[in-house]
């Protein structure tokens, strides 16, 4: 694809586990991200969903190279980030910014809004110091904050406003891609809607590309063009957001969709819910074959042999060998 801006090529992020203190030995690996390939077009919003521990946050950190890739490549605008030197990487990161989940933890409590927003401008030498206040003011306006609050500290703002500051900080360097890791999970419903509207607006107006990580499928469906469902470090279903969430094909996606409580008592009381047994298995010893097979209601002997590749089916890609039969 010509307009691909971010490409993940069989990305793997493994963390070694050590045992012992003096005789330190490698005792195993956590396969947090285990072979993810994804092409993201310019201006696209891709939702990344899955339960905690499925590797979605590690994948975000890997894209930003906050943790090193064990194998595979992260390619941003034609450059392989995993092979860059530290200096080149710092330069490349201008095009790639992140918004974190908890706006209470991600802002420095000792820095005013101005300090927080001017820091990236200063570090990357984007503009002369004299122009910084003007730039900061326009950033604040962009995210719906009044510039007169520039000299206030984070504790003087509510959760929703803090998340706006965090978004403004991510926008400061006019990045091509923003990765938002659960940006609305810590917020109340009415505030959540404000932040979702803001993100959607920014994507439309500035042509941003957004990777939106969340565990709330209804939020993801609302904002995303495409959605990737992850389970134990692998993508199990990938396709158009409405298609995947309204007509899920992978048994895991089906269970995930059916687990969302809908705010409609009539539907809620009549429908049959697929309740998955147990918890997701440990990524240290993932089950053989399809990693979902111990919890899958449709499991067969052949599912235990090999992890199924993503295949094209009904307008999306699914990693299940029984797709079409179930």
């Amino acid at each position: 694809m010509a307009d691909t801006i971010l490409e993940l090529n069989d990305v793997k992020t493994h963390f070694p586990i050590y045992k012992g203190f003096i005789l330190r030995k490698k005792a195993g690996t956590v396969r947090a991200v285990d072979g993810v390939s994804l092409k993201i077009r310019k201006g696209e919003v891709v939702g990344l969903v899955g339960e905690s521990g499925c590797g979605k946050s590690t994948l975000a950190r890997t894209i930003l190279q906050l943790v090193p890739t064990t194998a595979g490549a992260v390619i941003l605008g034609g450059r392989n980030l995993s092979s860059l030197s530290a200096r080149e990487l710092a330069e490349a990161r201008k095009g790639l910014q992140m918004v974190f989940q908890d706006p209470y933890a991600s802002l420095n409590p000792r820095m005013t809004v101005f300090d927080t927003l001017a820091e990236p401008l200063r570090v990357h030498g984007v503009c002369p110091a004299a122009e910084a206040p003007g730039r900061v003011a326009s950033l604040m306006e962009k995210v719906g904050l009044a510039p007169r609050f520039m000299q206030k500290y984070p504790h003087e703002f509510s959760g929703g406003q803090r998340q706006r500051i965090a978004i403004a900080r991510a926008l400061a360097l006019s990045p091509a891609v923003i990765i938002a890791d659960e940006p609305v999970s810590a917020l109340d419903v009415s505030i959540q809607a404000q932040i979702l509207n803001l993100l959607a607006e920014l994507v439309r107006e500035m042509g941003l590309t957004l990777v939106f990580i969340a565990h709330d499928l209804s939020v993801v469906k609302h904002i995303s063009d495409r959605v990737a469902v992850m389970y134990l470090g692998k993508i199990v279903e990938l396709g158009d957001a409405s298609t995947v969430i309204e007509r899920p094909q992978h048994p895991y996606t089906r269970a995930l969709v059916s687990a969302i409580p809908t705010p409609n008592p009539d539907i809620e009381r009549s429908r049959r819910r697929i309740v998955l047994p147990g918890d997701p298995p440990s990524p240290i010893h993932p089950p053989a074959g399809c990693t979902f097979h111990p919890r899958c209601p449709y499991v067969q002997e052949r599912c235990k042999l090999a992890f199924p590749p993503l295949v094209h089916h009904d307008g999306r890609e699914v990693a299940c060998i029984r797709v079409g039969e179930i």
């Binding site: 609302h222 809908t262 705010p263």
Partner: peptide, 11 residues
């Protein structure tokens, strides 16, 4: 203000 009750993409 709940997303799931809204048509997709609507403000």
């Amino acid at each position: 203000s709940i997303p799931s009750l809204q048509p997709k993409g609507a403000r």
